[in-house]
């Protein structure tokens, strides 16, 4: 479903992603965990074609990102951004925000479908006519999720989807994401600094540090504490339960 091989991303003289490789099977949920600045968000943005200076291979559903058109790619994969306060157009009512990808791609009946999508993420009816500043952080993130699903992609890339939210809201959003993945048969790549979130959401994960992947694990290895790298252990220790 997703294949990333020997990905290198540079910003000017700095290499922010170095030799990153992983693959994700259809229907699987894959996590990238690491600190801010470890390059994990850059991997996601590059997969979506938001960075230009990179080399390596990225394929989504067999389509190489480099040579696939933007609109074709848009129907395969979409992204949910970290900051729900910055990812919605402040002057658009949210129904318009959700309908926008469909309008851009000339899909009919976008208003009706936007309403259905909003209902699916738990924002029914009159919510559609509110402006982002009238919504809470959790509600905004739901809108962003609805928008990402507007073109019915099979892959959702989630960049710290809950790190700007309070823990009780985080639980609601994570539950929503799990439900959508099950109901729609989605493939997830989730980026987070919180190992517990990744452990809860993902079947497999990679630990990133200083632009590299230091270790790739599955959930069982993580839960049994079978970690090889010191850094991964430190992360695990810091995410211990109360």
């Amino acid at each position: 479903m997703i294949r990333v091989e020997n990905l290198n991303v540079t910003f000017g003289a700095a290499t922010v992603v170095r030799d990153v490789s992983f693959s994700v099977a259809a229907g699987e949920s894959f996590g990238l965990v690491g600190e801010s600045g470890s390059g994990k968000s850059t991997v996601l943005r590059t997969m979506m074609g938001l960075n230009r200076s990179w080399n390596g291979t990225i394929e989504i559903e067999g389509a190489p990102v480099k040579s696939t058109g933007r609109k074709d790619l848009a129907r395969r994969a979409q992204m949910v951004f970290q900051d729900p306060y910055a990812s919605l157009h402040p002057r658009f009512v949210i129904a318009r925000t959700v309908a926008e990808p469909m309008r851009i791609n000339g899909i009919d009946n976008s208003e009706q479908r936007a309403r259905e999508l909003l209902e699916m993420v738990g924002l029914p009816g009159a919510f559609g006519f509110r402006f982002p500043h009238e919504l809470s952080g959790g509600q905004r993130q739901r809108v962003a999720i609805a928008r990402a699903l507007a073109l019915s992609p099979k892959v959702l890339l989630l960049d710290e989807p809950t790190s700007a939210l309070d823990v009780s809201i985080q639980a609601e959003v994570l539950n929503l994401l799990s439900r959508l993945r099950r109901d729609l048969g989605l493939t997830f790549v989730i980026v987070s600094h919180d190992l517990a979130v990744i452990a809860h959401m993902c079947d497999r994960l990679a630990v990133m540090r200083d632009a590299r992947i230091v270790e790739t694990l599955d959930r069982r290895q993580l839960q049994e504490g079978r970690l090889v790298e010191d850094y991964s252990r430190e992360l695990l220790a810091a995410s211990g339960d109360v």
Partner: peptide, 17 residues
């Protein structure tokens, strides 16, 4: 570079749009 513009870009919007 705002994320809501990026989101429209990811949906395939042209520069003019």
């Amino acid at each position: 570079n705002a994320d809501y513009v990026n989101a429209a870009r990811l949906a395939g919007a042209s520069q003019a749009y």
